[in-house]
Write a protein that binds this DNA or RNA. Structure first.
Length: 468
RNA sequence: GGCGGCGUAGCCAAGUGGUAAGGCAUGGGACUGCAAAUCCCUGAUCCCCGGUUCGAAUCCGGGCGCCGCCUCCA
């Protein structure tokens, strides 16, 4: 029996997780839109989903995890021009939309691998599920949930009485302050497109035939169509960023519950908060972004960013600053060094001694995935004078099932792995000087190397050096 | 205008009724020819005001400040 507890946005409370099908957790995560590189903020939901996935597996559950890839464009906010992000990116690069999508999909997958995220079971692409999306829209049309206007086929939110329930929307209040609608023909501001017709005079690469004519799917449709295809008409968990609660997830629920006559369509909705970056959210639309690659260029290890992620709770806004990133990198490096030191221990752990630490770690992670608390337990293990090296090895490697920090495999960045004839020669000269206690000469050589970014450290095993 | 969240040491951040986890940085010590690395020690009464309570960072009320959603957005 699982004792994992998660905060369910649907009920606004922490609930014990019970899968619909005993022993099997079915999870859908809103995936990336691949018209641009994913920045650090975009990466948080996947780190979060990965933590969730690992926690479910640690509970002994089989996990089927689906993450969609949105490779068809959504309209930009400037709806009048009919511009589409995917199409625009393609036009700018002078490439085909499919090439742009493939390119950024690969980049995202690379980031996932670098961050040690467990690969999902299914990675469905929106463009490869057009028939499923059309079929879903047809069901809704047949059931009378839709209406057609010049702009496209729309979902009539008035026909779904529970529409405002999930996000606790105040539709009246919302209208009071709402801007002038983007599509004046819409019956209610909340109504959304299931199928869009092309805008006259605008060439689109991504268009398909449908019962309503040529066009392209509304952007909420793909998640409903693909999740249901791979996970069933009702499944356990749906994850995404908090920004999706209001519109995207509300609309997904409306479509799915109406089409399949299920309620609740998804039992547990889990949402991650945003990273704050320089006093505002990190967002592509504002250009306020930093990529994982940018961190690597600055000399950070990818898993140091995962460590940064684990230092905060997923449901809390977290401030990303380079200072905080440095702190995380140092912390990660040290934790890894501790793990590496005891990694090879062959002895058996003392079950009585490690049990309390195991219990506290599990308790933290089972309490709505409280990674910061779990990390603190890991640190306690490294500092404990009571635990034997074998105890520590056993605990840290077990904890890493959840943490995914590569504690069993990653090499700590301390000793130099490089060799350079010139530097080695200089170090040899310095050693000679030290041997004869000519410390002025020795220090001069070290200073010279430091000036070019090379740090020399004397150890009992002799000098070693590293860059930066 | 509507809705949600947050404000804890220099920084990142746990903790939601019983007297403040953890990491990083700082300072001190050990070690070192000196450093580096490492190890040990070291700091906050929790935005402000009022209330409830034997007791509040934690509950209630009122301020101030910050972030987000309502439009593409993780």
């Amino acid at each position: 029996m699982s004792t994992l507890t998660v905060y369910n946005t649907r009920t606004r409370q922490k609930e014990r997780f019970e899968p619909i099908e005993p022993g099997h957790a079915r999870v859908y995560s809103c995936g990336p839109t691949v018209y641009a590189a994913q920045h650090l903020g975009n990466l948080r939901p996947y780190l979060f989903a990965d933590l969730l996935r690992r926690a479910l597996e640690a509970e002994g559950l089989r996990v089927t995890h689906v993450i969609n890839i949105t490779d068809v464009g959504h309209l930009t906010s400037d709806a009048d021009t009919g511009e589409d992000k995917m199409e625009r990116a393609a036009a700018r690069a002078g490439r085909k939309a499919s090439e742009i999508a493939a390119f950024y999909t690969e980049k995202w997958l690379l980031d996932r691998r670098r961050l040690n995220c467990v690969p999902p079971e299914v990675l469905p692409k929106a463009t490869e599920h057009i028939p499923e999306q059309i079929a879903l829209a047809q069901i809704l049309e047949a059931k009378g949930y839709t209406y057609r206007i010049a702009d496209g086929l729309y979902f009539d939110t008035r026909k779904f009485p529970r529409y405002a329930e999930f996000a606790r929307l105040d539709l009246e209040g919302q209208e009071a302050g709402a801007r002038i609608g983007d599509v004046p023909e819409k019956h209610q501001p909340a109504d959304f497109a299931l199928w869009k017709f092309p805008v006259a005079g605008v060439e689109r690469q991504q268009e398909w035939d449908s019962p309503w004519g040529r066009g392209f799917p509304g952007w909420h449709l793909e998640c409903s169509a693909m999740s249901v295809k791979y996970l069933g008409k009702s499944f356990d968990i749906h994850t995404g960023g908090v920004d999706h609660i209001r519109v995207h997830h509300t609309n997904e629920i409306a479509q799915s519950e109406c089409a399949f006559d299920v309620h609740p369509w998804v039992r547990y909705w889990l949402h991650n908060e945003f990273y704050e970056f320089g006093g505002e959210k990190m967002a592509k639309s504002t250009g306020n972004v930093l990529l994982l690659e940018d961190l690597l260029e600055r000399g950070f290890e990818p898993l140091a960013f995962r460590y940064f992620f684990l230092q905060g709770h997923y449901r809390q806004q977290q401030s990303f600053t380079l200072e905080a990133m440095e702190a995380a990198a140092t912390g990660y490096r040290r934790l890894l060094a501790h793990a590496a030191e005891v990694r090879g221990e062959k002895g058996e752990p003392d079950r009585g001694r490690i049990a309390p630490l195991q219990a506290r770690f599990r308790e933290a992670v089972r309490d709505d995935l409280n990674a910061p608390r779990a990390l603190a337990v890991a640190w306690e293990v490294t500092r404990s004078p009571e635990l034997s090296p074998a105890d520590k090895r056993s605990l840290l490697l077990e904890f890493d099932r959840w943490l995914g920090l590569g504690l069993a495999t990653e090499e700590p960045r301390t000793a130099s792995r490089e060799s350079d004839p010139r530097i080695d020669a200089l170090l040899a000269r310095r050693e000679a000087a030290r041997a004869t206690r000519e410390f002025a000469t020795a220090d001069r050589i070290r200073k010279e190397l430091e000036a070019e970014g090379i740090l020399v450290e004397d150890t009992p095993e002799g000098p070693r050096w590293r860059r930066r």
